[in-house]
C-alpha cells in the first residue's frame, strides 16, 4: 500500500488537530502517502442521519467512501465512530442489493457513483497489518522502555467483528494496540476492564454523569491494577473522554492523580522524534512532563 485516503471526521480536525497532524507526519515517514479526501463530510455521526433514516445515512456514508474510490485509494480514519458508521454502512450496502439500489439513486442526485472498490480501514489496522510492527520498531528514535501504558482500543474497533476488514483474534481480549505499544518498547499489561466502554459519544451528551461514571470506573481500574504512566488509545472519542474527564474529576476532588492520555499516532510521532508542539500540543490533562521524559537523551536509541 503506497497511498491511502485520510478520512478526518469531525473530532480529530476540529477538537484535536494535533492528532490529525500526528497522522499526517507518521504515515509518510513509514512509507505510506496520505491523500486528502477533499470535500468529505461528517461520517455521519450515530446521533444524526443513522438515528433518523437508514437510507439517508447510507447515502451520506457511501458518498464519503466514493471520494476515496474516485482517487483509487482505500479509506482510513482515525476516529472509531467514523470507522463504525462507515464500515457498517458499507457492509449493509454491499450485502443488500435493494439498499445498494436506493443509495445509487440518491447518489445520482449529486452525480456520484458507487463501485464498491475502496475498503474502509482504521488507522490502527493500517499500522498493524500494512506497515507492520517491525517497520514501526525500526523507526523508533526514543524508546518507551520501562514505561507502562494502559491501552484503550475502543468499542467500534472491536464490535461487531462481522463488518471489519481486519479482525482481532479475540475482540474481547484485543491485542493489536498492545502489540503496537510494545513495538515502541512500552510495557502494556492487561487490566480487567480493557475492553469496556469509556462512556463517550451519545451517552456523554445524554447524561453526563452516567457517562463520567463509566470513565471513572475504567480509570480507577487502570490506576489500581496497573498504575500506568499513560493511557494510549486508538479512538479519538476515548481520547477526548479520558483527557477531559480527568480534569473534571480532579477539579471536583474525586481523584488525586493524573494520567497523561495519547492517541497512538501521537505517541508514535513522539517516539519517531517529531515536534511535540505539532503532534501532541493540546490537552486538558498535562502531558509536558511525560513528553520531555520520552524525548530525552536517555531514551534515545537512534541518532537522526
Amino acid at each position: 500500500m503506497e497511498k491511502i485516503g485520510l478520512f478526518l471526521g469531525c473530532n480529530i480536525p476540529l477538537k484535536a488537530p494535533d492528532i490529525e497532524q500526528s497522522i499526517r507526519k507518521v504515515f509518510p515517514a513509514l512509507g505510506v502517502e496520505i491523500v486528502d479526501l477533499v470535500g468529505a463530510s461528517c461520517c455521519p455521526a450515530w446521533g444524526t442521519a443513522p438515528s433518523f433514516d437508514i437510507d439517508t445515512w447510507l447515502a451520506l456514508s457511501i458518498r464519503n467512501i466514493v471520494l476515496a474510490e474516485e482517487q483509487g485509494v482505500d479509506l482510513m480514519t482515525g476516529c472509531n465512530s467514523c470507522f463504525g458508521v462507515l464500515s457498517e454502512a458499507k457492509h449493509l450496502v454491499d450485502h443488500h442489493p435493494e439498499k445498494r439500489k436506493v443509495v445509487e439513486q440518491k447518489l445520482a442526485l449529486i452525480e456520484k457513483q458507487y463501485k464498491g472498490t475502496a475498503q474502509v480501514y482504521h488507522v490502527m489496522h493500517v499500522l498493524y497489518k500494512e506497515i507492520g510492527l517491525d517497520r514501526i520498531a525500526e523507526k523508533v528514535k526514543y524508546t518507551l522502555k520501562q514505561l507502562r501504558v494502559a491501552v484503550q482500543t475502543g468499542c467500534h474497533l472491536l464490535w461487531p467483528s462481522e463488518v471489519m476488514q481486519v479482525k482481532e483474534q479475540n475482540p474481547f481480549y484485543p491485542t493489536m494496540l498492545k502489540e503496537l505499544c510494545e513495538a515502541l518498547g512500552a510495557d502494556a499489561p492487561h487490566y480487567s476492564k480493557l475492553e469496556s466502554c469509556c462512556g463517550m459519544g451519545a451517552m456523554r451528551s445524554t447524561d453526563q454523569e452516567k457517562s463520567l461514571s463509566l470513565a471513572k470506573e475504567k480509570l480507577l481500574c487502570m490506576k489500581e491494577e496497573i498504575d500506568p504512566d499513560m493511557i494510549v488509545t486508538t479512538c479519538s472519542s476515548c481520547y477526548l473522554q479520558f483527557d477531559g474527564a480527568q480534569k473534571i474529576f480532579r477539579d471536583r476532588g474525586e481523584i488525586d492523580f493524573s494520567i497523561p492520555v495519547f492517541y497512538y499516532t501521537q505517541l508514535l510521532a513522539l517516539c519517531m522524534g517529531f515536534d511535540p508542539s505539532e503532534v501532541a500540543a493540546l490537552s486538558q490533562t498535562p502531558r509536558e512532563e511525560i513528553i520531555s521524559r520520552i524525548q530525552s537523551k536517555a531514551r534515545m536509541v537512534k541518532e537522526d
Binding site: 474481547f172 492487561h190 487490566y191 480487567s192 476492564k193 469496556s196 491494577e225 496497573i226
Partner: peptide, 12 residues
Amino acid sequence: GGIEVLPDGRLR
C-alpha cells in the same frame, strides 16, 4: 455476556 480477568487471576 462476558468474563473479565482480574489482576489476581480471578474471573469476574
